[in-house]
C-alpha cells in the first residue's frame, strides 16, 4: 500500500490504532469514532497528533464540533461502489472548514482519485506499483469540470465567462 499526500509519495507517519491497543506517547495516531467517544479526555490530554477514521456510515457531522482536535480525518471506502465519503469530504472541507489531511482509505480505485481530489481528499492509500505515475495519470486524464466544488479548480462556467 502506498500513501500519496498532496501528489507526493510519502512514508506514513500515522499509526492506525486498534480500539484495544494501549495509547502510545506522542506518536501520531488514528482512532475510531467509537474510541474517540469513549476516551475523548485521554486522547485530548495526551497531546500528540490525533486523527480519526470514519466508517462509511459515520458522517463527519457527528464530529463537526470536535474537528479542532484532529489533524487528520480518514474516510473509509469499504467498496469502491460505496460513494458516501465523497459527500463527507465535501462537508468536511466546505461546511466545517476542516483544513487538515482528509485521507481516502479502503477500496480506492485509481480511476476514482480525481473525483476524490475534487471533493476535498488530499491523501490517498492506494495499491499501486508506480503510485506517483498513477496519480499523475489519474488526475490529468480529465481536465475540465462543470461542477463547482471546494477544491478551487476552475469550472467550465467560469472559463466560459472569462472567455466572454
Amino acid at each position: 500500500m502506498a500513501l500519496i499526500v498532496e501528489g507526493k509519495l510519502v512514508e506514513d507517519r500515522w499509526i492506525a490504532l486498534g480500539d484495544e491497543a494501549p495509547l502510545p506517547g506522542g506518536d501520531p495516531i488514528i482512532v475510531s469514532l467509537a474510541r474517540w467517544r469513549t476516551e475523548r479526555d485521554e486522547l485530548v490530554g495526551r497531546g500528540g497528533p490525533l486523527g480519526i477514521r470514519l466508517h462509511s456510515d459515520e458522517s463527519p457531522a457527528q464530529i463537526a464540533d470536535d474537528l479542532k482536535h484532529f489533524e487528520l480525518v480518514a474516510l473509509e471506502f469499504p467498496a469502491f461502489r460505496d460513494g458516501r465519503a465523497y459527500s463527507y469530504a465535501r462537508l468536511l472541507r466546505e461546511r466545517y472548514g476542516f483544513g487538515g489531511e482528509v485521507r481516502a482509505v479502503g477500496d480506492v480505485l485509481l480511476e476514482q482519485l480525481l473525483f476524490m481530489h475534487r471533493c476535498g481528499f488530499n491523501a490517498f492509500e492506494i495499491s499501486s506499483e508506480h503510485p506517483v505515475d498513477d496519480w499523475v495519470t489519474a488526475t490529468s486524464e480529465i481536465g475540465v469540470w462543470y461542477q463547482p466544488t471546494g477544491d478551487g479548480r476552475e469550472t467550465i462556467m467560469a472559463m466560459r465567462r472569462a472567455r466572454g
Binding site: 460513494g83 465523497y86 471533493c119 462543470y146 461542477q147 466544488t149
Partner: peptide, 14 residues
C-alpha cells in the same frame, strides 16, 4: 446534463 456529467460527488450513488 452539464451539472450531472462526471459529478465528482455523485458518480457512485447507491
Amino acid at each position: 446534463r452539464q451539472w450531472s456529467t462526471l459529478h465528482p460527488e455523485f458518480s457512485f450513488l447507491p
